[in-house]
């Protein structure tokens, strides 16, 4: 599994670019985090990833398929993307049907089984026959993640998967992602929640005004935290405090 983006430009209106000369690579088994200010172009990149939007310049390849020429419905077999706002993507009358929609379209032979597994993984078994709009916002978020997981794609791309989630759901997601990682799935995650995802990540991309301003292995980021400040990214408060205390006890 791989993503390869080369010199990608994108703009909704001519003259106001959202992404500029964006280049990145993701190889099988990796987990890349994309961080940056509100409105830096993070969510837009996810829409480019599965071909909903097409680059105005440059190319993106998913498993060797050019997103500009491959239909989204075909790319869907390789990459599952969730949106930030669950309301934008939920359309089925029950939780179970919503999850089943993806694997069935992709003609996965074990669609039912994949659905059951996703329901279990994200702790939604007891809500399977409920209407998605009867769920709490946090549960709806879990539902969108379950719908992506059930598609059984080698790559999962999430937009702020922990936004608005409390400790309980965060633990569900954390355990779920670990399990999916051992199954060999790759991740591309747009987030502000460095605290939560850094332990899972292999690499971190910092997006600033549509460009990759900084890219480094996750371990290196912790050491260079001061560099990230100017891109609107800071490590969690507790991490910073602990580091401060650590330095203090050493001196």
């Amino acid at each position: 599994m791989s993503i390869s983006a080369k010199g990608v430009d994108f703009s909704y209106q001519t003259g106001s670019p959202v992404l500029q000369d964006f280049t990145m690579d993701l190889r099988r088994g990796e987990c890349i985090l994309m961080v940056g200010r509100n409105g830096a172009g993070k969510s837009t990149f996810l829409k480019l990833l599965n071909g909903i939007l097409k680059p105005t310049k440059g190319e993106i390849y998913i498993n060797g398929r050019n997103t500009a020429t491959t239909p989204t419905s075909e790319l869907a077999g390789h990459v599952a993307v969730t949106f930030q706002n669950p309301g934008d993507q939920i359309f089925s009358p029950t939780v179970r049907k919503e999850i089943l929609f993806g694997p069935r379209n992709l003609r996965r032979e074990n669609a039912e089984e994949l659905t059951d597994r996703a329901l279990t993984l994200l702790g939604l078994v007891s809500k399977a026959s409920r209407h998605p709009y009867d769920l709490l916002p946090a549960e709806r978020k879990l539902l969108t993640i379950a719908s992506a997981v059930a598609m059984d794609t080698p790559l999962l791309a999430f937009d702020e998967p922990t936004g608005g989630l409390s400790q309980y759901e965060r633990e569900i997601i954390s355990n779920g992602l670990r399990q999916l990682k051992t199954d060999g799935r790759s991740f591309f995650i747009v987030t502000h929640d460095l605290d939560f995802f850094l332990p899972l990540a292999t690499q971190v991309l910092v997006l600033s005004s549509g460009r990759v301003a900084y890219s480094a292995p996750a371990a290196e980021l912790v050491r260079n935290a001061h560099l990230l400040r100017k891109y609107g990214v800071t490590l969690p408060l507790t991490t910073r405090l602990l580091r401060l205390l650590e330095i203090d006890s050493k001196s």
Partner: peptide
Amino acid sequence: WAQEARGAPVR
């Protein structure tokens, strides 16, 4: 979009 992103051949 959401349907297409989940493999429905809507186009």
